[in-house]
């Protein structure tokens, strides 16, 4: 197997004063060189926690890896110590965060913030790092890069800052880029530009990307594979064509229906999934989507479904695809 990253049975919990929050309850996926994988789901479904746990960025004081493994190029991340992680972070895996307004150090010039990683991982001199930084800024489409590099973050607009963030993340040419909702905080037109930039970088540098988002439009634009998460679990995976053409899990179906379409009637309401996701302090023992599911069956309440292969690469965790379900539907 030539998987760049392999996440197996990952379980992550947070400890709050109210108790243990099981934010991630068993996540499996793999990503190959140069592939773009989207992790999709509502806020609080564990997608961001999954992304951060790949880089071991979760606060060690109140979170822990309960189970599973994260293999990056064959190396077990969960067992890696801080020294090993420092070699991976920024160097082999880069990360882009959601809010470019707060992700840059406000009291440090852009030049320093780009150069830091280069000097550490590439042993560049101050001058080399500066020149390379200018090249990077040009690459992500910042005009007058040679001048702008000496500015502070607050002198850039939101979209420009996200470009700077991307420049910082790709500075050391990482093999994997994790983008945690990179466009959520931006205006729609800027979103499109940033997506175009990511696409171009992927083609130019052959970087694998894990894209965390709740926006299916973003997914369609950029990704090869989709992972749908709900309440800390993966409920459906597949390649982009499969998922968009034929979503199988009721939650994915709901997500697809809630995308606004051009052919919608003027008076047609945008579809939304009723209810709220379950409390992960006491996750339900059956299917987590049970209380919001139109197709719920008696079994769903007490037994959690496993992932089953459905098409070539499509898998879903839903009792509807159990052989007994088909016969039950037929007979009832």
């Amino acid at each position: 197997m030539d998987n760049l990253l392999e996440v197996k049975d990952l379980e992550v919990s947070f400890y709050t004063h109210a108790g243990e929050v099981q934010a991630v309850r068993g996540v499996n996926f793999a990503i190959k060189q140069g592939e773009v994988v989207a992790i999709v789901g509502e806020s609080g479904c564990g997608k961001s926690v999954t992304a951060k746990s790949i880089m071991k960025l979760l606060p060690s004081s109140n979170s822990s890896y309960k189970k599973g493994s994260i293999l990056f190029k064959g190396q077990e991340i969960i067992q890696a110590n801080e020294r090993e992680m420092k070699k991976i972070r920024g160097n082999e895996i880069g990360m882009i965060f959601q809010d470019p307004m707060t992700s840059l150090n406000p009291t440090s010039k852009i030049s320093d913030q780009i150069a830091e990683g280069l000097r550490k991982h590439r042993n560049m001199s101050r001058k080399e790092a500066l020149n390379y930084g200018i090249k990077l800024l040009e690459m992500v489409g910042i005009p007058h890069a040679a001048e702008r590099i000496h500015h502070y973050p607050h002198e850039f607009s939101g979209g420009m800052r996200q470009r700077v963030m991307i420049a910082i993340a790709i500075a050391c040419e990482p093999e994997l880029l994790i983008a945690d909702e990179p466009t959520t905080a931006l205006d729609v037109t800027i979103q499109a530009q940033i997506l175009k930039l990511l696409k171009q970088l992927k083609d130019d540098l052959n970087t694998a990307i894990v894209l965390i988002t709740h926006d299916l439009g973003v997914v369609a634009e950029l990704c090869d594979k989709v992972i749908v998460m709900y309440a800390g679990k993966v409920v459906e995976t597949g390649n982009i064509a499969e998922i968009f053409r034929n979503p199988r899990h009721p939650y994915t179906m709901g997500l697809m229906r809630s995308i606004p379409r051009l052919d919608m009637q003027r008076d047609e309401n945008l579809y939304s999934i009723v209810g709220t996701p379950p409390d992960l302090l006491n996750p339900p023992k059956g299917c987590a989507f049970y209380s919001r599911c139109k197709y719920a069956m008696k079994i769903c309440k007490d037994f959690s479904p496993e992932m089953e292969s459905l098409e070539q690469s499509q898998k879903a965790a839903c009792w509807l695809y159990h052989p007994l379900a088909k016969s039950a539907v037929k007979t009832s």
Partner: peptide, 20 residues
């Protein structure tokens, strides 16, 4: 697993109300 377990559940939406 029995066939009976796969009949539609009717009361599942109610549960959402009690969670909040």
């Amino acid at each position: 697993l029995t066939k009976e377990m796969f009949v539609p559940a009717e009361d599942n939406f109610l549960e959402a109300e009690t969670i909040s």
